[in-house]
Structures are given as C-alpha cells and as structure tokens.
Design a protein around this nucleic acid. Structure first.
Length: 425
RNA sequence: GGAGAGGUAGCGAAGAUGGCCGUAACGCGCCCGACUCGAAAUCGGGUUACCGGUUAGUCCCGGUACGUGGGUUCGAAUCCCACCCUCUCCGCCA
C-alpha cells in the first residue's frame, strides 16, 4: 500500500514512478476519492461534535431534573444527517481502499528502468558453466531414469504439475531443506519458524497476494482460508498490527514450507519437469528491517541465498530486475539464476526483494524509535533461500555423468549418509 | 459438537443500575526529575493509537477506537443480535 500522504502531496510524482513499471495507474481517481472522503469527514465530524455537546447538555438537564425534550428533538434531525453522511463516507472509504490495495509498489530510485526481463542487467556471475563431452540431459530424464522422480504417478494422484519423489530424490529434498535451514540458522542469524500453511484473507492481503491475485492461489472450499504460495506470507505477517521496539530490529526468520500455486496463466510453460509445480518445498528468508538499513539488508540477504549455491558449487548469476519486471509488492528485486546445462540457460532460482514500507502499511507493521516518539513503519524483505525442487534440478543437471549417474555436491553428503553419487542401475 | 467463563493502555486489572469513565481508578513496567559520590529504596511528574482541521511545530482543536460487525438510544465499555478469539469441563479425534 502506498503512502496516502504522498499520494495527496505529489500524485504526479507517484504516477510517474508507477508508469515505469509499465502498468499506468490513474492517480486522479485517488485524488477525487480522497478529496470526497476528507470533505465528508469535515462535515461529519462537525455534526458529531455538536451531538456530543448536546448529549452532555441533555445529561446536565436530566441531572438537574429539567426537561430535555427540545434538545433531544433537535438531535433527531442532526442524527438523520449523520447517518446519511456516514453511509456516503463508508462507500467512499471502501472505494478508496480498493483502489489503494490494487496499486503496486513504486520502484526504488536504484532500480534500472526497463520494459521486461530482457532489460534486466546482469550484476555478476559466479562459477563456470560445466562443459560436457556428451549432450547433457534435462533433469526429468535423469530423475526418471534414476527412478527418483515419478511424474506419472504424481499426475495419477493429483494431476499435472505434481510429482512423486522416490528414494534418493525424497531423501535429497529432505537433505536440501535441512542444509539450507542449518546454514541460515547457524551462520546467517535467522530464527527458524514453523507456521500455518493456510492463512486467512487478512494475512494474504497484508503481503499483497489479495485482493488482486486471488487466481494464483488455492482457496479452501467452505473456509475462508488460502494455501500459502510462499512462507513469505506467514513470516511477513507474523508481527502484523504490532509495535516492535527499535532494538528488536532487524528480525530475521527462515521457514521451510510447502508452497501452493495455481499457476493460472502459465499454460504450456515448463510443462515438463520440476520447474513449475502446484506444490513445491521452499526455504524462505524474511527480514523486518529498520527503514534506513533495508537496502543494505537486501544485499546481505541476497548474499545468503548466493552462499547456498556456492556451497553446492552451482554456477549462477545475479540480475537486477528492471522496473517493468518487478513483482507487485517489491521496491527492488534481485533474481539469482542458476545454470541448467540440460536447458542450456540460466533459470531463476531465487528472488530477493525489498518491499520497503509497502507491505508494512498493509499489515500494519511498525516499530517505536529508540528515543520514544511516534511508531514508524518498518521495511520488509523476502528472499528464497532456496526452493528445494529447483535446486534439485540444478544438482541433477550440473552433476550429471555420461552414464546417467549424478554426483552429489560435497556439502550435501553429510545429509545423504555420505553418498557421493546417485548411480544408475 | 455441547456447557460455562472471559476479551478494556506495554502487562495485570477496576468500571457492567446507560450520561461528570477513556489520554481509562489501582498495581507493575517504561521515561524525566529530586535525593545520592553513584546506585537501590523513597518522593514528584510524565507515558495509547489512528483520522481530519490547523500549523514553523512532535503545539492546539475536532472526530474515532473497550475482540469484530450490526442494532436500540439524544447519549453505549455498560442493553440487544451475529460472528471471531482465549481459557475450563464434556464429547470426538492423530
């Protein structure tokens, strides 16, 4: 949610910033609604002030044993007017709220301007894509021939975009999640959390999935609950409507959860393999930051995600999302892309965003400055660290051998009973 | 699912016959000051958030908020209705 005060003060500036995202927003609508809201408020508050004063007079009259009926009669008219105006105000407020909740965040000044993913600059690359003396296979071929990934049975049990992991693949999932969480909690300072996997409407609104992106979510029938598409949702909303102490910041949380996504509108994209599933496991990092330090913390968090890839010896690069390619709530985003030899390209494996105070306003996340004074909105950050399925894809494709076996990265072996490679039959 | 109790400031709580009770008694915490070499103890003072008007201003003025949403009333923490949450007991259940 954008700052109402900023929208009032500089609507043209807000419109310019939003236009950089490529989805122009009619800020005049807001100006009109907000003007009407404030005009109504002034009138209503005046009448309510009168009513409060007269009610006190009524009380005084009654205590003194005097007749208060002329006063009461007069208030009947005032009350009818208040009722009428209150209804008008409710309608305007609902409209204004709907407007402001559907408007995306403004890009930070440091975000490169561009139209789409082709304009995302590469910030840096780590590791050399491996060269194979044979044609590298894609991960689903490897996973199926090594009898770890069973897409057929996933489809039988649930449908397309579901998989069954068997034996070493199931174990590898568990190993990766544990490895990620161990590094984050032991070395990166995150507190591990276990949260509800389904949340209410308010929580989904706090991070920005609702009201605009309901189609991307799985919703429970007969319950106003939604399956989380990422642990960002419960973790960011953890302190909703609280006022934290400045000295508590930054708060850093990590959680491993299944994530559920409808993938509406992605028909035909990544239909094979693990890249785009309705259900996948992910370790997510969330930071609640002091507003003055959030951009430093974005760099730190992006480093935490990269560190995992480096330990797993997976070549990757970092791109900065341009203004036209950023998500709804983000003020600035880095994507980390891992090299996939089978696909012969870099694919997104982590997205690290600073949402500024956008989610904090929606979820009412505030802190009290150290010296006392007014509570301020904090800044929220989230980053994948990392999605388990896509990491498994990268391990399979980068570690593959000509005979169809796959080497397990050194860092993961303690989590795999020392297993050095997945061997074909 | 059934029965009961409860939800008021950072915390514990008072208020429930509708009006002088909402920056809200009382206690704790926190902040400032006095005392002290310093501290503790003690004493004095302060300490909700949001919206609007206004402003040089965190001043001032008005409005709103007692779990949430409605209703009754000139006036609701207080009366009525619905819902949510917490606790206790019973039932069911991994």
């Amino acid at each position: 949610m954008l700052d109402r005060k900023l929208l009032q003060r500089d609507p043209a500036g807000v419109a310019r910033a939003l236009a950089l995202r490529g989805s122009p927003v009619d800020v005049v609508e807001f100006t009109v609604l907000d003007g009407r809201r404030r005009a109504l408020l002034v009138e209503i508050e005046g009448l309510k002030s009168e009513r409060n004063a007269v009610s006190a007079e009524v009380a005084a009259h009654k205590r003194a044993g005097k007749d208060a009926s002329p006063l009461i009669e007069r208030m009947g008219i005032v009350n009818a007017r208040i009722r009428e105006l209150d209804q008008a105000l409710d309608a305007v407020q609902a409209e204004e709220r709907a407007w402001i909740l559907s408007v995306p965040n403004m890009p930070h000044a440091s975000v490169p301007v561009g139209r789409d993913e082709r304009d995302n600059p590469v910030i840096r690359a780590w590791g050399e894509p491996p060269r194979f003396p044979f044609a590298p296979k894609e991960h689903w071929e490897l996973g199926e021939s090594l009898k770890g990934l069973d897409f057929g049975r996933g489809a039988k049990l649930a449908g397309s975009r579901f998989v069954v992991c068997r034996h070493w693949a199931a174990r590898l999932e568990r190993a990766l999640a544990n490895f990620f969480l161990d590094v984050h909690t032991r070395e990166h300072g995150y507190t591990e959390m276990l949260t509800p996997l389904m949340v209410n409407r308010e929580t989904m609104t706090g991070t920005g999935q609702l009201p605009k992106f309901a189609d991307d979510l799985f919703k429970l029938e007969n319950w106003d609950y939604f399956l989380i598409p990422t642990a960002e949702v419960p973790l960011t909303n953890l302190h909703a409507a609280e006022i934290l102490e400045e000295k508590e910041l930054p708060l850093a949380y990590a959680a491993q959860t299944p994530c559920f996504r409808s993938e509406a509108g992605s028909y035909g994209k990544d239909t094979k393999g693990l890249i785009r599933m309705h259900q996948f496991t992910k370790v997510e990092m969330v930071r609640l930051s002091h507003p003055e330090r959030s951009y430093e913390e974005l760099e730190i968090m992006r480093g935490h995600a990269e560190a995992l890839l480096q330990r797993l010896e997976l070549p990757h690069r970092v791109v900065a999302l341009c203004t036209g390619d950023m998500g709804f709530a983000a003020a600035k985003t880095y994507d980390i892309e891992v090299w996939l030899p089978g696909q012969n390209c870099y694919r997104e494996i982590s997205s690290c965003s600073n949402c500024g105070d956008f989610q904090a306003r929606r979820a009412n996340l505030r802190f009290r400055p150290a010296g006392g004074g007014k509570p301020e909105y904090l800044h929220t950050l989230n980053g994948s660290g990392l999605p388990v399925g896509r990491t498994l894809v990268a391990i399979l494709e980068n570690g593959q051998r000509e005979d169809g076996g796959v080497a397990i990265p050194e860092a993961l072996r303690p989590y795999m009973d020392g297993l050095k490679a997945i061997e074909p039959d």
